[in-house]
């Protein structure tokens, strides 16, 4: 089994860790970097709780090994709020619209939604549902989560009223 010295940034801060090759990025963040905001649910790619941004793209951090992100820029839930703890617009919308209950899935949903809000294309109802269906939540019934992202997207000027939902013939 090989061990590797791996360097990357998390929310702009350089991290240099020495890890076994089999350690996933999720574990690396939690165990080696002490950043336990990224949650681990299924550990096999199904639930999305572990979603982080790797070079600005959303990925399941349980399906990438830590050694693979050498040189990459990682963003996690810990990087969303301001330094004084003030929630950002998306986080505030989750609170306002009951986008969470137990909160276990929340870091994954927030990182996924962060990506949607930052993409060049605006968010439509159809793309909102398609992308948000990536992750599982056992509490909210999803409507609160969709309401929250919709509200944040409107507030940030990232919402597009077109985009009806298509159903198969």
């Amino acid at each position: 089994m090989s061990r590797h010295r791996t360097t990357f940034t998390v929310n702009g801060q350089t991290q240099c860790v020495e890890i076994e090759a089999r350690r996933t990025l999720a574990e690396t963040l939690r165990e080696n970097c002490g950043l336990t905001g990224t949650h681990v649910g299924c550990e096999h790619g199904v639930c999305g709780a572990c979603t982080v941004l790797v070079d600005d793209a959303p990925m399941r951090s349980c399906l990438i090994f830590g050694v693979q992100v050498d040189g990459a820029a990682i963003r996690t839930i810990e990087g969303l709020a301001a330094a004084d703890g003030t929630l950002n617009a998306l986080q505030q919308a989750f609170q306002d619209h009951h986008g969470l209950q137990c909160g276990f899935c929340t870091p994954g949903f927030l990182m996924l939604a962060t990506w949607m809000l930052e993409r060049p294309q605006k968010i439509t109802e159809a793309s909102l549902r398609e992308v948000m269906s990536s992750n599982l939540c056992r509490c909210t019934g999803y409507q609160g989560i969709l309401d929250a992202v919709r509200a944040a997207a409107r507030r940030l000027g990232r919402w597009d009223d077109a985009g009806a939902i298509s159903t198969p013939a």
Binding site: M1, A21, T24, E43
Partner: peptide
């Protein structure tokens, strides 16, 4: 240093 890895060890 918690032992948390699910996959078996490998060389990378």
């Amino acid at each position: 240093v918690g032992p948390s890895m699910k996959p078996a060890a490998f060389d990378y």
